[in-house]
Nucleic acid binder design. Structure first.
Lengths: 207, 207
DNA sequence: CTCGACCGGAGATAGCGTCTCCGTTTAGCG
DNA sequence: CGCTAAACGGAGACGCTATCTCCGGTCGAG
């Protein structure tokens, strides 16, 4: 006997519902919520997925890789500043739209999925950053780690975007990038965090 | 019979312990934690204070007023930019040291204590801001509401300061202020949030 | 038509924070 | 010194929320 048609359909319904619910409310949502949103019972959800993490992994599979791709595509842009800004805007846009994605990236990077992709992201982003800095369009006392920090700061900005005005994060991303660009200002008053603390930096944005 | 001496001493011990514990771990701490930190039993804590909120109110009483005072003192500084920066640094320093204070200011402003003081803070900070803007040291497309937003963004920075390096918040506050100062850059891509949303803006920093 | 896989959702289970109850201790008056 | 009312301590009752299971009923597939 092959897979029953209703079973396959319900699995797809669950993944789709999870995509929507996680994006809207983050991983705080319960599997029960997702099941109801899919028009199914709790038991059905737990038969298809052993727990919430498994479903989340399924949903996030593509999204996290996309970030590495965005980084590489940005690196292909000739203008160093535009390239950096493009990377920020693309990713911020994704995260603003998908609260679950933001939480996955900041909350905990200890998933093996994450651990596999991060090194690649870090490498590309560092290239993006140092190129801009060498070109003199990023202040000399900035460091690549500051990019991770800025993403952590955007968390509250996304929250505001949700409750006040959808595009608000663009305003504050631009403000922070102008700060990152300020080449004619006194040196920043504290050294950048060590690269070894990258995970802690991202986690500071945890919700 | 007057108040028993041990009772009075224990009350003081509890307030002191609460000050320390709330500052370190925020309002997530339980009254049981505080009692143990004071070397007392849970029951004792609940006899002196009906609940956690009451204790918190006691502890925060002075701290919130201090912020209004800081704002007024900053306004007395002649240089408009220095005045604004001084306000930011003083308050940020307090909040970096006291996680409970940060949570009280961002988490929920609906306490009557808060509601009483906020108008005064808002008025002073707006004066501080518009003076700097008129002097041309703050970008023309910024708004006083952006100050609240910046405080919300500092939440993750405080978190990093706790786990990575104590002074890290200074780096990122400086970065954001440089963004606020950038007068020669293209206009910010989204309008400031309406003043009526101030509470939502602050709450975006909630932990 | 039959049977086994699947569904649904009530509720068992677990973890956590809040607060109470009451046997024990102790300050301080007489 | 005693005596008594007040205060203490901390185990555990309680309420809440989220995760996950169980089983009678349903339905797709051969």
């Amino acid at each position: 006997m092959s897979v029953r048609r209703d079973s396959a359909r319900n699995r797809a319904l669950l993944i789709e519902a999870a995509r929507e619910v996680f994006a809207e409310r983050g991983f705080g949502a319960t599997l029960d919520d997702i099941a109801r949103h899919a028009g199914l019972g709790t038991g059905t959800a737990y038969r298809h997925f052993p727990n919430k993490q498994a479903l989340a992994a399924e949903v996030l599979a593509g999204a996290t890789e996309q970030i590495a791709i965005d980084a590489r595509e940005s690196l292909a842009i000739d203008d160093p500043w535009l390239a950096l800004v493009t990377f920020f805007e693309r990713n911020a846009e994704r995260q603003a739209r998908d609260r679950g994605l933001y939480e996955a990236l900041t909350g905990r990077g200890d998933d093996e999925t994450q651990a596999r992709i991060w090194p690649s992201i870090i490498e590309t982003v560092t290239a993006l950053f140092t190129r801009a800095q060498r070109a003199g369009v990023v202040r000399a006392d900035a460091a690549p780690q500051d990019i991770a920090a800025i993403f952590a700061f955007l968390g509250p900005a996304f929250e505001m975007s949700r409750t006040v005005a959808p595009d608000l994060w663009r305003r504050y991303l631009a403000l922070m990038l102008d700060g990152l660009r300020a080449v004619d200002r006194p040196a920043l008053p504290a050294p950048p965090p060590p690269v070894s603390e990258l995970a802690s930096i991202m986690k500071a944005g945890k919700r």
